[in-house]
């Protein structure tokens, strides 16, 4: 079961401090860009709860991200609601409900079946938004206004300020990190890790495996919804591609490259992959080609991700040749 070493804790504190202070010298472009990265880091972290801890490889996770964006878009554009007091619960609720429905159908299966079913059900939501003119069809739609957060005349948070949005994203990311860390230390977290290791044994011990998995699925979907809410506030644009399976594949790449089964891995993965993508895009219009090669290289040469690489380096440094295993 996972424990945080002192070195990892130090690195974590340093990284958080760096992110908190970054706007002091970062220019506008990078403040915006790092905000986006943090949104995707949160999204990836939510998927890691499923892939890295519960052993549930979902290829439809973008559905919960995208549906939150559409929940915001719908309320703002169609109902004129802009208060975050309404938008945030609505976005999280939409994601949680979608996750409960899709999870309920898919967790009864496992392995490749689970992969295919999550993909197909997420794609159903994709087509729902893609086919309907009401939701803007394939082109998507602009969200007319950013969310507002005010008590009477007092503005608590200005979503139009890129600095405030930056810190909101950072706070959400840190909050999600703490929440997941708490969950993973609880009996629920232990049950998840046990289920990944040996589902049948967990049943024999008396664990309601399906229920534990469904709870994990809904939590992960809801956190993806939080990322989706931030994405809506950040980009003010809803497009079906956000729910599409390329997006689901993309976020899976973030998790794997960073290192699944660790909370910092997906964050690391988001930073590395999004920065690389940005760099590749300056080289050529065909940057997806390079990404494809990159993804394949990661699978072939870095299957445990950057976190695995760090662990190997660390254990070599400590003079122990043997790896710590994957449990």
């Amino acid at each position: 079961m996972p424990h945080l070493s002192r070195a990892a804790l130090t690195a974590l504190v340093l990284a958080t401090g760096f992110l908190a202070l970054f706007p002091l010298w970062g220019d506008t472009f990078y403040i915006r860009f790092v905000t986006k990265i943090m949104v995707y880091a949160l999204f990836a972290m939510s998927l890691d709860l499923l892939v890295g801890y519960a052993g549930l490889v979902s290829l439809g996770h973008a559905a919960f991200f995208g549906i939150a964006v559409y929940a915001v878009a719908g309320l703002v554009n169609k109902a004129g609601v802009t208060s975050a007091f309404v938008l945030l619960p609505a976005a999280l609720g939409a994601s949680a409900m979608a996750a409960a429905a899709i999870g309920w159908l898919s967790i009864r299966t496992s392995g490749v079946y689970f992969i295919m079913i999550t993909l197909a059900l997420a794609q159903m939501l994709f087509y729902f938004f893609n086919d309907q003119k009401y939701w803007g069809g394939t082109d998507g739609m602009n969200i007319d206004q950013r969310p507002t957060l005010a008590l009477g005349d007092l503005t608590l948070l200005n979503f139009g300020s890129r600095l405030q949005l930056y810190y909101l994203a950072l706070a959400c990311l840190a909050g999600a990190f703490v929440l997941l860390a708490v969950l993973l230390r609880s009996p629920f977290g232990h049950a998840l890790v046990g289920i990944r290791a040996n589902e049948g044994r967990m049943r024999a011990l008396g664990y309601d495996v399906q229920r534990v998995k469904l709870i994990a699925f809904v939590i992960a979907g809801t956190l993806a919804g939080l990322a989706g809410f931030l994405e809506a506030a950040r980009s003010t644009f809803a497009t079906p591609a956000l729910l599409g399976w390329h997006e689901s594949g993309h976020v899976l790449v973030l998790v794997i490259l960073g290192g699944m089964g660790t909370l910092y891995g997906p964050v690391l993965g988001a930073f590395v992959v999004l920065l690389l993508e940005d760099y590749f895009a300056t080289l050529t219009d065909r940057w997806l080609l390079i990404m494809g090669v990159f993804v394949i290289a990661v699978v072939m040469f870095l299957p445990d991700g950057l976190a695995g690489l760090f662990r190997r380096v660390a254990s070599l440094a400590r003079g122990r040749g043997r790896s710590a295993g994957d449990g």
Partner: peptide, 15 residues
């Protein structure tokens, strides 16, 4: 892990 299976309900937030 075995002993935790007998907790009367599934705790999410308590260590």
């Amino acid at each position: 892990l075995a002993a935790e299976a007998r907790l009367p309900r599934l705790h999410l937030f308590r260590a």
